[in-house]
Amino acid sequence: HSHMSHTQVIELERKFSHQKYLSAPERAHLAKNLKLTETQVKIWFQNRRYKTKRKQLSSEL
């Protein structure tokens, strides 16, 4: 499990705020920019979407 830097997370968050789903080319581009693997980016987005979904569910209770 590799640790992401604060800067990388900020960039991922910024991208996520604009779009929740990335196409393969977008993911490849973002990964390259942030010096991450595409898998890391993919998993981060999956986890981030899951967290957002959970938060929405709990706020509706």
Rank of each mutant, 00 (worst) to 15 (best):
H1A: 08
H1P: 09
H1T: 10
S2A: 11
H3S: 08
M4K: 02
M4G: 01
S5N: 07
S5V: 03
T7Y: 14
T7E: 13
T7K: 14
T7L: 13
T7Q: 12
T7C: 13
Q8L: 04
Q8K: 05
Q8W: 05
V9C: 13
I10S: 11
E11T: 06
E11F: 06
L12E: 02
L12N: 00
E13P: 01
R14H: 10
K15I: 15
K15P: 00
F16W: 05
S17L: 10
H18D: 10
H18F: 09
Q19P: 03
Y21W: 11
S23Y: 06
S23P: 03
P25Y: 11
P25H: 14
E26H: 03
A28Q: 09
A28I: 09
A28M: 07
H29L: 14
A31S: 04
A31F: 02
A31P: 01
A31E: 02
A31W: 01
K32V: 10
N33V: 15
L34V: 03
K35C: 15
K35D: 13
K35E: 07
L36T: 02
L36V: 03
L36C: 05
L36W: 03
T37R: 02
T39F: 10
T39H: 11
T39V: 11
Q40E: 07
Q40G: 03
Q40L: 06
V41R: 01
K42M: 10
K42G: 04
K42V: 05
I43Q: 09
I43T: 06
W44A: 00
F45S: 00
F45K: 00
F45T: 01
F45C: 04
F45A: 00
Q46N: 07
Q46W: 09
N47Q: 13
N47H: 14
N47W: 15
R48S: 04
R48L: 05
R48P: 01
R49E: 03
R49Y: 04
T52H: 15
T52P: 12
K53E: 11
K53R: 13
K53W: 07
R54Q: 13
R54L: 11
K55L: 14
K55E: 15
K55I: 09
Q56R: 11
L57W: 05
L57P: 15
L57K: 14
S58P: 15
S59N: 14
E60N: 09
L61K: 11
